[in-house]
Amino acid sequence: MFRKDKSIKDAKEAAELWKALPQEEKEEYEAEYKQALDKYKLNVGEWQETHPPEKKARKEAGTSRKKVAKEGVPKHPTTSYLLFKLERGITDVKEAGEAWKSLSAEERAVYEEKSAEDRKRYQAELAAWKNEHPGEEPFERKTANQVPGESAKKPAKPKKVWAEGEPRPPVPVQTDFAKSHGKGMKEGMEAWNAMTVEQKKPWVDRYKERKLAYEKEKLAWEAKQRGENTAEGASGGSGEEEV
């Protein structure tokens, strides 16, 4: 806001100019910031309404993927800060940070030079690895519970089989918008992203209403299913055994 209006790129300069501003002008910028923050929160809330927490679900299920170096790939170069920590034997993060800040430029240069040498080592070893493994990437994505040597592909989701009469959930907001305007998904998403929050709001509200109706229908359907199953169980076990 303030820095953008003043075309300021340097944080120090921005801080000095901010201090020099009269209180009335500061309040204007603060109000503008609050308005932008509220808009951001609305956008985040809207996004969360239409996007399930897939990343969290994958992590809990042990299917989240991380980047893993293949066998024989050289170790990444060590940063100057980490070299300093290892040499001094400092394990506390706060203590290490303060000690690093207290170093003079000449003292830091020693570790930076060592780090630069280690980067050269890494680049040379990585180039050699790539020559030995043409066409291969040095890193791959693996899931937490993946068996070594097994494909790192994301497992396919089982197809949902709908029972007779089972309510269907509403389509996502963007899909509803695209279909209502006779657009393909790509074109529809472009049009959706170009809209303002106010323009999107009726569609989001419509989705919320449909979702609420779906949840009510689902609860009623599940209750009905439980009732029918209970009735079947009772009728099946009511007969007397012959002696």
Rank of each mutant, 00 (worst) to 15 (best):
169 P>C: 07
169 P>L: 03
227 G>A: 13
232 E>M: 01
179 K>R: 14
236 G>Q: 06
221 W>E: 08
177 F>V: 03
158 P>D: 11
235 S>G: 02
151 S>R: 15
190 E>M: 10
136 E>G: 04
197 V>S: 13
199 Q>N: 06
159 K>M: 14
239 G>P: 01
212 L>Q: 09
231 A>L: 08
215 E>Y: 02
237 G>W: 08
174 Q>T: 15
194 A>C: 06
236 G>V: 01
215 E>A: 11
206 R>I: 01
166 E>R: 06
231 A>N: 04
144 A>H: 14
176 D>C: 12
201 K>G: 03
158 P>R: 15
220 A>L: 14
185 M>A: 06
228 E>V: 10
210 R>A: 10
158 P>A: 12
195 M>P: 07
239 G>F: 11
181 H>K: 12
212 L>D: 10
161 V>N: 04
216 K>C: 00
159 K>H: 09
183 K>F: 08
229 N>H: 05
213 A>G: 03
148 P>Q: 11
166 E>L: 09
173 V>A: 04
229 N>M: 13
188 G>I: 05
228 E>G: 01
181 H>L: 15
171 V>P: 07
181 H>W: 09
223 A>M: 10
146 Q>P: 03
204 V>C: 05
185 M>D: 04
149 G>C: 11
232 E>K: 15
190 E>S: 11
137 E>K: 14
190 E>H: 03
185 M>T: 07
157 K>M: 12
216 K>Q: 08
